[in-house]
Design a protein around this nucleic acid. Structure first.
Lengths: 121, 121
DNA sequence: TTGTTGTTCAATCAATTGGTTGAACAACAA
DNA sequence: TTGTTGTTCAACCAATTGATTGAACAACAA
């Protein structure tokens, strides 16, 4: 299996069935049987999918008599968003500055923006 | 392969080597050989990784003489962020309201917020 | 106790994935 | 032309994945 947690999270969400489960769990907690109902697969297959989501830290399972309600954990999403936003911003910044094309124009690089007249401090 | 684009994107980012490539491409465009250099795999393996990233729409390849520089595309990231943020917000909202526990307290649900006095229209 | 329901484990299978090597193609240099 | 460099294609292999069926376990009801 994937060694690092970020790989596990991305890998877990790479499956449309698992993403659909997440979507439904965002509305309300559900049991394995409830989750399996709309899909054309066996309950065991859904149980396996849940194990993948659980290993990724996306869901947790509690105990309610003989039922095992599945609960969505929101914190892990931030791990992804952080990674994505970092490179998205970097790539957009690079695009905005047109760094590749305008590298030969030193005036445009200007790491220190010109101070506005009358700005305090 | 994965049918839908979101699956392709998540699947592409589920590999640490591919994520590292993205990180390096966020700094500057690079050729297959340049990208392959730090890894202990063949150039062909890296070329395959790039095909996965390309199929997911995360990178594009242009032509510069006999080189094929790889360029990071930022737009696709938004597809992911949108999906993630949607359910993260939903899950957090649900947690904030403690819906599961406090469902029996109607006062707390209040779907219509009290109008502020003197608000126009 | 025995039965019923919900869930998971184990073995198996086909398809996919990430890697390899070797051959081929593409663009330039002599 | 022939060679050199950068890249991709093709065939193959081991490991992983998503699904199956059948058995087992866990908690409750009679």
């Amino acid at each position: 299996m994937a060694a690092d947690s970020l790989s596990r999270v991305f890998s877990a969400l790479a499956d449309p069935t698992r993403r659909d489960m997440i979507a439904r769990l965002a509305v309300a907690d559900a049991t394995v049987n409830e989750l399996a109902e709309p899909y054309a697969v066996t309950v065991q297959a859904v149980s396996k999918h849940l194990k993948v989501l659980e290993d990724a830290g996306l869901v947790t399972r509690t105990r309610d008599a003989q039922r095992r309600p599945v609960h969505l954990e929101a914190e892990v999403f931030e791990l992804m968003t952080k990674w994505i936003e970092r490179y998205r911003r970097q790539a957009e910044e690079r695009y905005r500055r047109l760094d590749d094309v305008l590298r030969s124009m030193p005036d445009d690089v200007a790491p220190i923006p010109p101070p506005k007249t009358g700005e305090p401090s």
